[in-house]
Each structure stands twice: as C-alpha cells, then as structure tokens.
Simulated scan of single mutants.
Amino acid sequence: MSLELDDELAERLEQRAEANGFDSANEYATTLLRTVLDELDRVEDDGDVEERLEDLGYL
C-alpha cells in the first residue's frame, strides 16, 4: 500500500520523525497509524468511542 501525501504533511512527518528519533518518516507514519488504530480498537471494545476520542484529542 502506498499513500499520497501533500508536501506540507510529508514535511511535518519528516520533521517529527527526526525529532522523535525515527529512522524515516515512513517508520514514524506506520507507528502513528498503528497507535491510532490500536486506540480505536480498544475504544470500540469499551463501547465508549466518542468519550475516548475526546480524551485523545481527536474530537
């Protein structure tokens, strides 16, 4: 799978990856997506999706 990112988003990922000690923006993006999906899975299991998303700052 590949994702197309606009230049601004790609640059933000690269900057954050470097600042957080990741070897690449791809590695950082993979970690971010995995973390968010794991959180969403946990929230769905808990049945309180909206509250958990608010706690995480997504809403």
Rank of each mutant, 00 (worst) to 15 (best):
G57V: 07
L56F: 09
L37A: 00
E8S: 14
Y58R: 11
G21P: 04
V49L: 13
L53C: 12
L5C: 07
D23Q: 03
E27I: 10
A29W: 00
Q15S: 11
G57C: 08
E27M: 15
N26G: 04
E44I: 00
L40C: 01
G21A: 06
R42S: 10
L37S: 02
E54T: 10
L40A: 02
L33H: 10
M1A: 10
E54A: 07
L56H: 14
E50R: 08
R16P: 01
N20K: 14
A25P: 01
D55L: 05
E11S: 15
L56S: 07
E50V: 01
A29R: 00
E18I: 14
D41Y: 00
L32K: 08
G47P: 02
D41M: 08
L5P: 03
E8C: 10
G47C: 12
M1Y: 09
A29F: 01
L53R: 03
N20S: 11
G21L: 12
V49F: 07
M1F: 06
D55A: 05
L13K: 02
M1W: 07
L37R: 05
E54C: 04
E44N: 00
R16N: 12
R42K: 07
D38T: 06
Y58V: 14
E51F: 13
A19G: 11
R52H: 15
G21F: 14
D55S: 01
D6E: 02
E54Y: 04
L59D: 02
E51W: 14
N20L: 14
D38C: 10
V49S: 01
E4Q: 14
G21K: 11
T30S: 07
R12M: 14
E11Q: 15
R16W: 10
V43I: 07
D55I: 04
T31V: 15
L37T: 04
R12T: 13
L37I: 05
G21R: 05
V43H: 07
D46C: 11
L13M: 12
V49A: 08
D46I: 04
Y28W: 09
D38P: 03
E51S: 15
Y58M: 10
R16D: 07
L13E: 02
E50D: 11
G47W: 07
L32P: 03
Q15G: 05
R52D: 15
E14V: 10
D38F: 06
E8M: 11
E44Y: 01
L56W: 15
Y28N: 02
R42P: 05
L13I: 13
T35H: 08
N20W: 12
A10Y: 03
